[in-house]
Design a protein around this nucleic acid. Structure first.
Lengths: 186, 186
DNA sequence: GTCTATAGAGTGATAGAC
DNA sequence: GTCTATCACTCTATAGAC
């Protein structure tokens, strides 16, 4: 067989950006073929389930990134304060300081939500759980509510900064959320 | 002229729910005709600009509701504490305690964002400005950052509660946000 | 007759599936 | 590349208020 010019992972990462920018409905196959550099034939070879399978692959690609860079460090953290700083650094990097939106958040609001409900729910449930656990170990009161406030705050900051076209809103919110967490620790 | 069976406002309200649930791309004309009870002829008579004009009308319908029920009361408020309580009550009612998402927030993340950028930006800018002004008059420090945190918090709570399929998350966040505002007042 | 509101078959274009 | 379904949209026609 011929060597693949583009790895599956690489293709998924490129397709992810199409879904992120265009949403599920808005992401046309022609946009996906163009962005991925794969012809329709190759695409259906990799993703026999079509567009829906591509989106599933993209969602689990994102989930894997967060599991590795965010959830697991939160769970393994020796020092809560450091872990929180690391989380915010990772999040700020991932969302490009407010210039990139959350694909999973967008899918949560999307029409096609029901189709990907399980993956979307899992992403957020893991995030809240990992953060709440870390906060609890750090001695914070009401760690669950606090974790929900932070995850929601991040998502909302992405919505607001994109709506206002002001990435600084995101950066500022991240700073404030981090300060709230630190001050909630025992 | 014949009496309209459905008022324009009524039609817009019904169409709004289609866009809210399906997004701009996902809202097909057939879904819109079905939900509105209007044939294509009627729709194009009311909205010669087609789907885009329908979405514009829906956005300004939503904006008008918030201007009347949220922004103006915040601006006119004699008592800050009461005004804040009223805002949260209005918001909880509008979003059906977390069972209904924000159409404008969804459009902010949508692919078609650029098309409606002005309306989306205006909605959020007005909300933040009206709330910040009210907080400032109430003697809060950093009213702008606080207002952004609350508006973002509400949007994020909608994303999170929809993603987790737990409306209670929204209700709880609203309560916490309100408490934060009250305690920030002089 | 003129105008507005209505309906819906029919248009070409384009989507996703294969 | 081919196929079929569906898309947004146009057009023609009709009904009733003036």
């Amino acid at each position: 067989m011929p060597a693949a010019l583009i790895s599956r992972d690489d293709a998924i990462a490129r397709i992810a950006e199409v879904f992120r920018e265009q949403g599920f409905e808005g992401a046309s196959l022609s946009a996906i073929t163009e962005a991925s550099g794969l012809g329709k034939g190759s695409l259906y070879n990799h993703f026999p389930g079509g567009k829906e399978e591509m989106a599933e692959a993209v969602l689990s690609h994102v989930d894997a990134w967060f599991a590795r860079e965010v959830y697991q460090p939160l769970r393994d953290a020796a020092d809560t304060r450091t872990a929180i700083g690391d989380m915010f650094r990772a999040v700020d990097g991932y969302f490009r300081s407010g210039r990139r939106i959350c694909l999973v958040g967008a899918f949560a609001l999307d029409a096609t939500r029901d189709r990907f409900a399980a993956a979307v729910q899992d992403y957020f449930a893991q995030w809240v759980e990992a953060l709440a656990g870390c906060l609890k170990r750090g001695g914070a009161k009401q760690p669950r509510a606090l974790a929900e406030a932070v995850v929601a705050g991040i998502q909302g900051a992405l919505v607001l900064s994109r709506a206002l076209d002001e990435p600084a809103v995101f950066t500022r919110q991240l700073r404030d959320l981090q300060a709230r967490l630190i001050s909630a620790l025992a």
